[in-house]
Amino acid sequence: MKIPSLVLFLAICSAAYATQCNVNPVNVPKQWITMSRGCRDSVRRQIQMEVSASIQYLAMGAHFSKDSINRPGFANLFFEASKEERQHAMKLIEYLLMRGELTNNLTSLIAVRAPERKTWSSGQEALEDALKMETEVTKAIRTVIVNCENDRSAGPGQDDNDYHLVDYLTGEFLEEQYKGQRDLAGKASTLKKMMDRHSALGEFIFDKKLLGIDI
């Protein structure tokens, strides 16, 4: 009984105090850290959402890679989208770090869960599903903007209107979302037209087009 409790005690201590293996944590002024709690928590939730989207795109890539589906162009598109979503999560993390956040509660920031959906009946359906997912992400970014633009719960010394983050999200993230949505919607339209009378051939040709092969 004594040894485990000693280990636990040491483990608790090591988190806050110096052991022989690390230097004492130091305190530097914190007045410059001005993000409000409501805004910060919204960004944290957004990071989780981007991670979930990246995993959902992985599932789409996996589906279209199957031998029975055999759409490498679609698979490629979705694997790339998955990487992009992960990069969005990384950009938001980077932003929080710049603003003096993420000094604690790191472990709960990201939970890796299995994707909700695993199969799609066609490339067309997957493109439309991806478009729907992007629309939800865009909506969520707008919610973060609203939460950061007017946070009534902001304490003294905190930003009730986080101009810079709002500008960053509006200028960089929303721009990328709108461009991405337009691209998906365009692809979905073209494919749908090609599928109209020649569904099997249409999807086949579109898939090769996505790979950069002209046939």
Partner: peptide
């Protein structure tokens, strides 16, 4: 991320 915060 943790090693990139201002304290660590």
């Amino acid at each position: 991320a943790y090693y990139n915060n201002y304290q660590t």
